[in-house]
Computed example of a mutant assay.
Amino acid sequence: MRVSVIGGGTITDEETDVAAAVGRELGSRGHTVVCGGRGGTMEAVCRGAKAAGGSTIGILPSDRPDEANDYVDTAIATGLGHARNALVPLNGDAVIALAGGHGTLTEIGFAGIYDRPIVGLGTHDVPGVETVETPAAAVDAVEDAVRS
């Protein structure tokens, strides 16, 4: 399945480790990562997924596919700026939300509008987000939600 992973563009070393671990978990289970395609959470989750043999899709805010991070397999240039935040959760079967700011919160909102299962690991505490404690639990939860 495709799993949208959302989170901050600027993150701490600990948050980078968590995002990479989520990517490795998704990649090792054969899932495709969908993200915003740039730095921070997006780069870390893609790096983790690629290290585990997974594939990645980056939905970029600019009109330049070459702005994708080095771990994106398929770069989709939109030219939409922040409006591309609607497309990231739309293109996943489920969403894993990591630490982030207002952009992450907008993507959580769109995930809810699109009725995507949303699992949170160190993210915003809002209704509709199932909170988990580990990367493996996050992937377990999205797998369970999509199978239901």
Rank of each mutant, 00 (worst) to 15 (best):
L121F: 04
D13E: 14
D13A: 15
P65E: 15
V18S: 08
G58E: 07
V72N: 08
V139I: 03
A141I: 10
G40S: 10
L98I: 10
A136I: 00
E130S: 15
Y71T: 07
I113A: 15
L60D: 05
H31M: 11
E15T: 07
N85Y: 04
V95P: 04
I6F: 02
G54V: 03
S62L: 13
T16R: 14
G54Q: 03
V146D: 02
T131P: 03
E25R: 00
S55I: 13
G54P: 00
T106A: 10
G101Y: 09
T10S: 13
E107Y: 01
L121Q: 07
R24I: 11
D63L: 14
V22L: 03
T16P: 05
N85E: 05
I76F: 01
G37D: 00
N69D: 13
T134K: 13
R29C: 09
G30H: 05
T134E: 11
V34A: 10
V18K: 01
K50D: 10
Y114A: 13
G92P: 01
A21Y: 02
D63A: 15
A136K: 07
L80Q: 09
A77L: 06
V95W: 07
D140E: 11
H31K: 04
G27I: 06
T10L: 11
V146H: 04
R116K: 15
E25K: 00
A97I: 09
T12M: 09
D13S: 11
S55W: 08
C35L: 07
L105K: 11
T41K: 04
G8Q: 02
L98V: 09
R84F: 02
D125K: 15
A97P: 06
G8I: 10
L121R: 07
A138G: 06
A145T: 07
G23F: 01
I57P: 04
T74P: 05
G92T: 00
D144M: 08
T78F: 09
L105D: 13
A51M: 13
D144G: 02
G23Q: 01
T10K: 15
T10E: 10
R47G: 10
V146T: 10
P135A: 02
E133S: 15
G7D: 06
G53A: 03
A137Q: 13
G48W: 02
